[in-house]
Simulated scan of single mutants.
Amino acid sequence: MGARGDWQRGRPRARRAARQRERLPSEPTARRCRRATLPHALRGRDWLRAAGCAALAVGVIAPAARKRLRLPPLATSLLAWQLPLTTARLLPPGRLRAAATYAAQMWAYYVHYDMPDDRPGALERRVRVDYPIAIDRLFGAGEVPTVRLQRALARGERLRAHDYLLTFAHWAWFVVPHGTVAYTLWRHPERFRRTAVGVAACFDLGLVGYWALPTAPPWWASRIGKLPPVRRTMAAVGERLWGRLWQPLYHSVEGNPYAAMPSLHFGTSVVAARALAEIGPGHGAIGWGYAGVLGFALVYLGEHYVVDLVAGALCAEVAWRLARKVVPDEDRSVSGDLRSNGRVPATAVGKLISSSPPASAAR
């Protein structure tokens, strides 16, 4: 009877405790209530996200308007290089963040590729013309290979079929390195990071040569009388195909005209070939085949010396070794996030389900 009485006396107490728990807000509700009482600037990470979005906008707009804003080079560099870092921190894991971070890195590269031409007069006073001619004459047994090739294959001002084909190979370069990065992101995400790091590192290494040793291409050296006549075949083909639109199109992407050493056309194509060769022999054959055709085209068209290609290949080798060190063979951690675009991968869900105890065991 005493035990029964104690139990009965405890029931009102338990009921009061239950009613009190019902009146208390749940944890998410309490968190929302606390959030509602805070000033907007202090709510969670909203102010960090707003600052990140502002940094993204400044990183795009300010370098593009650096001449009008009279930004010094150091300030332009800081604003441009923070862009990929901010992008990687601001966006959630997935394909969108991967693509956006790579695009931000390439924007920072282009800003620095174009910056030396902000003061054309000062740049022209620093341009080197003679040293690549001297080195290429060693490669060409006393004659610059560009001059030798155009003498053998060109026919004056008349354009032939191979002039068009080699020009198209040159123009295709604007797609090949970045297309390779996009292809790995789409079809082989486990290889994306290494490919993106290799291509981006090759571009950035080339900036060292562009800033430290501005070098004129063969067609420019021919214009000032340092070489025998060299036809700039790409320009002739562009004018034939595009007419009056050619000059606006060309100047919209021209950038620094004295960025010949090293040849990043060739270097980044070699990195793309290395990345494709890791996927399979067929992919590698396409990548190396294009790199070989492009190398020949760059010399024949008068866009680069052979020594520029050698320097570009060295940049590619250093960049690829760096990419292999940063992203080793066994590193496949990024593939799940990229395949699922930041959502929980189906394989992870399957593992979670298979590792859960059966209902009978839970009971």
Rank of each mutant, 00 (worst) to 15 (best):
Arg32Met: 12
Asp163Glu: 11
Leu227Arg: 00
Gly140Ile: 03
Arg32Cys: 06
Ser335Glu: 13
Glu303Ala: 13
Ala161Asp: 11
Thr29Gln: 15
His283Thr: 13
Arg324Val: 01
Ile279Cys: 08
Ala65Asn: 13
Tyr131Glu: 07
Ala141Glu: 14
Arg128Ser: 09
Leu79Cys: 09
Pro93Val: 08
Val197His: 06
Ala55Met: 01
Leu138Arg: 13
Gly238Ala: 06
Ala359Asn: 09
Pro281Arg: 04
Leu165His: 02
Gly292Met: 14
Ala36Cys: 12
Arg151Leu: 07
Arg70Thr: 10
Arg223Asn: 08
Arg4Tyr: 07
Trp288Asn: 04
Gly179Met: 06
Leu352Ala: 15
Leu123Glu: 05
Arg151Ile: 02
Ala41Ser: 13
Val60Trp: 14
Ala313Ile: 05
Arg35Gln: 14
Val208Asp: 10
Gly287Tyr: 04
Thr268Asp: 02
Leu71Gly: 06
Ile279Gln: 06
Leu138Trp: 08
Arg11Glu: 05
Ala104Val: 10
Leu207Asn: 03
Thr184Trp: 08
Arg151Asp: 01
Trp211Leu: 04
Arg4Asp: 05
Gly142Cys: 03
Tyr210Gln: 05
Trp288Val: 09
Pro132Glu: 00
Asp6Cys: 11
Gly312His: 02
His162Val: 09
His304Met: 08
Val318Thr: 12
Trp7Tyr: 13
Leu301Phe: 00
Val326Asp: 12
Cys202Asn: 03
Pro132Gln: 03
His265Gly: 10
Leu56Tyr: 07
Ala3Val: 15
Arg151Asn: 03
Arg31Ser: 12
Asp130Leu: 01
Arg332Val: 13
Ala30Cys: 11
Lys226Tyr: 13
Val270Met: 07
Tyr109Trp: 09
Tyr290Leu: 09
Glu143Ser: 08
Arg240Cys: 08
Phe266Pro: 12
His40Gly: 14
Val129His: 11
Arg95Asp: 07
Ala235Pro: 05
Val58Arg: 04
Glu278Tyr: 05
Pro116Ser: 04
Arg194Lys: 09
Glu190Pro: 02
Arg274Asp: 10
Phe296Arg: 11
Leu123Met: 06
Gly280Val: 03
Leu322Thr: 13
Lys67Gly: 11
Thr180Phe: 10
Leu298Thr: 05
Pro248Ser: 01
Pro28Phe: 00
Ala51Phe: 03
Tyr210Trp: 10
Arg35Phe: 09
Trp320Gly: 05
Val344Lys: 04
Pro72Phe: 12
Ala260Gln: 01
Leu74His: 10
Arg11His: 12
Ala221Arg: 02
Gly10Lys: 15
Ala55Thr: 02
Arg16Ser: 13
Trp173Pro: 06
Pro63Glu: 02
Gly350Val: 14
Ala50Trp: 15
Ser252Thr: 04
Pro145Gln: 02
Arg21Trp: 04
His265Val: 14
Leu298Arg: 03
Glu190His: 12
Ala212Tyr: 14
Pro281Lys: 01
Leu79Asp: 01
Val144Tyr: 00
Ile286Gln: 01
Thr146Glu: 00
Met1Thr: 14
Gly336Ile: 00
Arg148Cys: 05
Gln20Glu: 15
Ser355Met: 12
Asn256Thr: 10
Leu298Val: 11
Trp7Ile: 15
Pro257Asp: 04
Val318Asp: 07
Ala3Pro: 06
Gly238Pro: 05
Ser355Lys: 10
Gly282Lys: 02
Val307His: 00
Arg126His: 08
Cys33Phe: 14
Gly238Asn: 02
Leu56Val: 10
Leu264Asn: 06
Tyr250Phe: 14
Glu143Tyr: 03
Gly179Gln: 03
Arg137Trp: 00
Asp130Arg: 02
Arg89Gln: 12
Cys33Asp: 15
Asp204Met: 11
Gly267Asn: 03
Leu207Thr: 08
